[in-house]
């Protein structure tokens, strides 16, 4: 009697019903979606390499590419592809932006996380978040139409488009992101660190500088790195505010041209498959690899923080 019933149960439990198959189906579907992120990043690398790869065999000279400042891909008689000036343009603008954005955003992050309270904190966080949302083309327009005349007036220079303008705009763009990430890093420091230090009689600022900042060090470094990555990769704002002329700059008022802006400005005028076209994709490979490296390092730095 009992064994009959048991057999019935066991057959029941070995039947894979529709729910079982749907579950397997969605498990596979979700897995494919999850892995697609890897597929996408690999295809980005694949396609920009595919378009730019043959440049390495045809016109690429390591010496010229990295050490020459002559970017003349459209020259009919003697096209050259030196990116030194472009790289310096990118570096000077990003560097200037970081000079402004790093201290500002670290201070803002410290203020929001450690000093501001309740309502003030919420309002500041919302404002910072909204700042981060302003599109880069709008920043470019602001640099072009508001900063440009301002710089001309203030410093009595003929043109207001250059490292200074671009750096300020880029700094304003990168600061909200860096602030948010830095604030997250500070918030991740457990409260009992602060309480322990306060129990020893330390004041708030002592706690912040002696306890919280050292504990959040890695997260803060990651915030700066991601800010650098953002500045390095920014396209439209730099294109519109840097003056976009190939130049080895000697002063902050000099006009420069950035790697990203070069692609944006020239790609539309090249024929698909031409040497110039391939050279621009080669710049893309370089940008991809550098930002990949920056993101990877930032990620490793943050992971190190967590393990700690």
């Amino acid at each position: 009697m009992n064994s009959d019933k048991n057999i019935l149960v066991s057959q029941d439990l070995d039947v894979k019903d529709s729910a079982w198959y749907w579950d397997k189906f969605f498990q596979i579907l979700m897995f494919i979606s999850g892995v697609s992120a890897i597929f996408l990043i690999v295809s980005i690398f694949f396609f920009i390499t595919k378009e730019g790869f043959s440049f390495f065999f045809e016109s690429f000279s390591f010496r010229e590419f990295f050490l020459s400042s002559a970017w003349r891909p459209t020259s009919l008689s003697n096209p050259t592809h030196g990116i030194l000036a472009l790289a310096i343009g990118t570096a000077s603008v990003t560097g200037f932006a970081m000079l402004l954005a790093v201290p500002f955003s670290l201070c803002a992050a410290i203020f929001i996380s450690e000093f501001a309270s309740g309502r003030v904190r919420e309002i500041l966080k919302v404002l910072i978040e909204l700042l981060a949302a302003i599109p880069s083309v709008v920043w470019g327009f602001i640099g072009l139409s508001i900063m440009n005349p301002l710089i001309i007036d203030l410093f009595d220079v003929p043109v207001g488009l250059g490292i200074l303008n671009s750096g300020i705009i880029l700094g304003l763009m990168a600061a909200p992101i860096m602030t948010t990430i830095a604030e997250d890093a500070l918030k991740a420091v457990p409260d009992h660190y602060r309480e322990a230090a306060e129990a020893l009689g330390a004041t708030k600022w002592q706690v912040t500088f002696k306890v919280v900042l050292p504990a959040a060090k890695n997260g803060l470094v990651a915030a700066i790195l991601l800010g650098v990555g953002r500045g390095f990769g920014e396209t439209m704002a730099v294109l519109m505010t840097s003056g976009h002329s190939i130049n080895l700059p000697t002063s902050p008022f000099d006009s420069v041209r950035a790697l990203t802006a070069t692609i944006a400005a020239e790609l539309g005028e090249t024929a698909v498959g031409s040497e110039h076209y391939k050279a621009l994709f080669t710049l893309g490979i370089l940008l991809f690899l550098v930002t990949f490296a920056i993101n990877l390092i930032a990620d490793i730095v943050v992971k190190g923080n967590k393990r700690h």
Partner: peptide, 18 residues
């Protein structure tokens, strides 16, 4: 469980329903 080895049940969800 009820005459059945739980580790060998093919539809583990049906098992958990019981």
């Amino acid at each position: 469980f009820g005459g059945l080895e739980v580790s060998r049940v093919k539809n583990v969800y049906a098992l958990r329903k019981k």
